[in-house]
Nucleic acid binder design. Sequence first.
RNA 1: GCCGCUAUCGUCUAACGGUUAGGACAUAGGAUUCUCAAUCCUACAAUUGGAGUUCGAUUCUCCAUAGCGGUACCA
Length: 537
Amino acid sequence: MRTEEENIKLAELLYPNIKDSREDIMKKYPKRELEEGAMVTRFAPSPTGFLHMGGVYSSLVSTMMAKQTNGVSILRIEDTDKGREVENGISLILGGLNGLGIHFIEGVTGEDTEAGEYGPYVQSRRLPIYHTFIKEMIANGYAYPCFMTEKELNDIRDKQLALGVKTGCYGDWAKWRNASLDEIKAMLDKGAPYVIRLRSTGDANKTYDMVDLVKGKVTLRENDMDAVLIKSDGFPVYHFAHPVDDTLMCVTHVVRGDEWFSSLPLHVELFNKLGFELPQYCHIAPLMKIDGDDNSKRKLSKRKDPEADVQFYVKNGYPKEGVIEYLLNLANSNFYDWRKANPDASPFDFILRFEKFNKAGALFDIVKLDNACKDYWATLSAEEIYDRVVEWSSTYDKELNSLLLENKDYCTAILNIERTGDKIRKDIVKLADVKDLMSIFFDISSYEDISNRVSTDMQKNLLQEYISTYDDSVDGVAWFDNVKNIATKYNVSAGDVAMTIRVAITGRTKSPDLYQVIHVLGKEEMFNRISLYLKKL
RNA sequence: GCCGCUAUCGUCUAACGGUUAGGACAUAGGAUUCUCAAUCCUACAAUUGGAGUUCGAUUCUCCAUAGCGGUACCA
């Protein structure tokens, strides 16, 4: 057991260059002046080159909660694991978030830029801050250097497993927690690598209650793990960065995935030992996915599920409004009722409530998301959709982009088919669908065969009759009356006549409203197509 | 193995301890006298199991089971 003086010496020995005290640091991060009830939230992703939908979900909740209470939302980058970091990781995160309309008030705004007075907002730029607090903890006897090797750690783990007890570095298993100053000095002189561990004073047999805003009242077991706080490369682990950063940045509500819930007791102990006030915790359930292999539920996985990656939505041109609607629906199921009552409101105006969140993991249902997206596109005009496709295709489909730009009026007319009146067409889920939808208006690559429904000879008769009776000036009802007349004359169904015309001018057995298609194409183009088809028959 | 969280139709969910357990998505059928999409109507479909408390339990308690999470010098 080391004495108080020895601990102070130890702290000085380990961090001789840290001269600031905690007060020096705290002064730079004054309490925020916000109105009563304002929430300060944060989203803290790692720049691993991949923004998970679960992250989008929690960032959406964080930003909306802050906005609804006139608080502050912060985007902080947790880049303390140098092994997993990826180049342009920050831009990827920002791109994905902004692409979905999620914006933070404060924090990182680019690879090397940030906004706000409580920075830096990238953890690798905050090392002296972490070191100041860890130095103080060592001096107080709350933390210590541990020289255990990977092999030693594995060995005790094997022993613990064999004994059927809890694994990890705690109690008597933590061999360096009470080492003498001389023993430590000897190791340091040898240049042995070390980590800084918490010197836990918790008792795992004791429990206490606290409130999680999503889960309600929860009973926690005290932490007794001597968790690693500072890695051998000098970077903090998440567990240590969390209390330090969130306290200095005056975060009031920690919204994070449920996978963190298990480490809450450790965080509580750290807040206490650091003399910090505990924030409110909101552990939201993860997004799940049915695994095809064995039908079991599992976390939406970035390796197995393309829809786990935000890039999937961006690349395919999913509307941000649809994705947001779906996510909000998942967050608070009363969103649906609100949407019915407020059909024109922005989804960001919906009031989220922590107590309405689901406690268990929800299956991420891409079919339902598609449905929300279809509904959204149906609310737009042809011009609005045209603008959105142009914007999207400029990066994701250059060929479609130039087609759109060269034929603006024509393309808008195509997009306007069945988009007016009270029967709105819903066949667009994502902008990537638009290409296929437009293709028939530019080029027919092949014809579907309907000869088993209408014989080739009959098709010729019907089309000739159609050409000779066609009147460009009549409305849809009169146009179809004519189709019916042709049907009667040749003793076939009106459907057969319509189908024949459809295949002749679109090549397909399925198409939008024929009358409207014809008028977008124009009389001349229609006749050209029909004669081309007649030749092929 | 150890620790924790959770449990209602296929999926997301609603239901002061008293409801014919409701809605949405999906699926199936029908209507819209041209296909597809949409829309409207109808149908299908659930309280994990077992004890207990209670006049009465989806709701409260306990046990079991299952799913998920954690058990890292990852977040």
